[in-house]
């Protein structure tokens, strides 16, 4: 036998090795167990939301809830006005906010002098972290009175106020993600376009933005998710009347606001109807993610 082996003072006794393997297994199981918490959470939430929301759908009927225009709990549970309010406010925020955000991203990634970009970028990141109640407060004290003055109406708590606040709120999300994906493009894209004699602006719009499309879609879908899921800022500026709005200058209540405003005192079928509101909201989120998948899938073909 070799002497190096026999003098090996560090060799572990058999028992210690066994113990070690045992510890390894315990930790492996612990980590796996933790990983299951997320799975379990989703399952519990899904089960609860559907279990609690179904009675309302059963009692009042799916079409009465989704297409019903009257929300008079505990008699009528029509949430069509809230669906419309959520969709209109989100759509409006996207129409205003997304072009501005994408162009700002282009500015930061392509046009801004370095010092300016280095100043603006952290500011934008900061704004992504500001609580929604702060935006709501800003909307309440600035946007709402401004609408009153501009349109000569008694109360500025309107869908329009909601749209403007949401548009401001989605800016940081869409800007940050779009800029990241624009910057991630290989410089050869731009060089190739410029080498063909295209102007800088032309190559931005014809080459860079299309090439960064999937990142931009992701940014937009996160922005949409933020807008449609936003609760407090909306409650603070949109007036919350549960009636079908006739124009952008009328108050309205979104799906999220409906839940937040009534959940603390709702019982029985009323509470169940709020869960159905939550189900409808989740359906919109699922549709949003499905369309993102579809868009990015279509692109890869």
């Amino acid at each position: 036998m070799d002497s190096a082996m026999t003098t090996n003072t560090l060799k572990l006794p058999e028992k210690a090795t066994k113990k070690r393997d045992w510890i390894e297994t315990v930790f492996h199981l612990l980590f796996l167990g933790c990983a299951m918490v997320g799975v379990l959470s989703v399952a519990t939430i899904a089960w609860f939301v559907f279990h609690e929301g179904l009675p309302a759908f059963q009692q009042a009927g799916i079409s009465e809830i989704i297409f019903g225009r009257e929300w008079l709990p505990p008699a009528l549970f029509g949430i069509a006005p809230m669906i419309v309010a959520s969709l209109i406010s989100t759509l409006g925020a996207v129409i205003i906010g997304v072009p501005i955000a994408i162009l700002t991203a282009v500015f930061l990634a392509e046009l801004a002098p370095k010092w300016l970009a280095n100043l603006v970028r952290p500011a934008v990141e900061l704004l992504a972290g500001i609580p929604s109640v702060v935006y709501g407060f800003f909307g309440l004290v600035i946007i709402v009175p401004m609408i009153e003055v501009l349109f000569h109406i008694p109360a500025g708590n309107t869908i329009l106020a909601g749209i403007i606040v949401l548009a401001i709120m989605i800016l940081p999300t869409v800007i940050t993600i779009s800029e990241t994906s624009l910057r991630a493009l290989p410089s050869t894209y731009k060089e190739a376009a410029l080498a063909l004699g295209a102007s800088h602006i032309y190559s931005i719009f014809r080459v860079l933005i299309p090439a960064a499309r999937s990142g931009i879609y992701t940014g937009i879908s996160l922005g949409v998710a933020r807008a449609i899921g936003e609760t407090m800022a909306i409650i603070m500026v949109m007036g919350n009347a549960p009636a079908m709005p006739g124009s952008l200058l009328e108050p309205a209540r979104t799906l999220t606001a409906n839940i937040a405003m009534e959940m603390s005192y709702a019982t029985g079928i009323h509470a169940s109807a709020l869960y159905s509101t939550g189900i409808v909201l989740l359906v919109f989120i699922v549709l949003l993610n499905a369309s993102l998948l579809y868009l990015n899938h279509k692109r890869s073909h």
């Binding site: 989703v42 899921g229 937040a260 959940m263 939550g278």
Partner: peptide, 16 residues
């Protein structure tokens, strides 16, 4: 499941 958790609007967490 993790991505789904990230996608659920916070008001639904409140409800739950």
């Amino acid at each position: 499941c993790t991505e789904s958790l990230a996608g659920i609007p916070s008001i639904v967490y409140g409800l739950f």
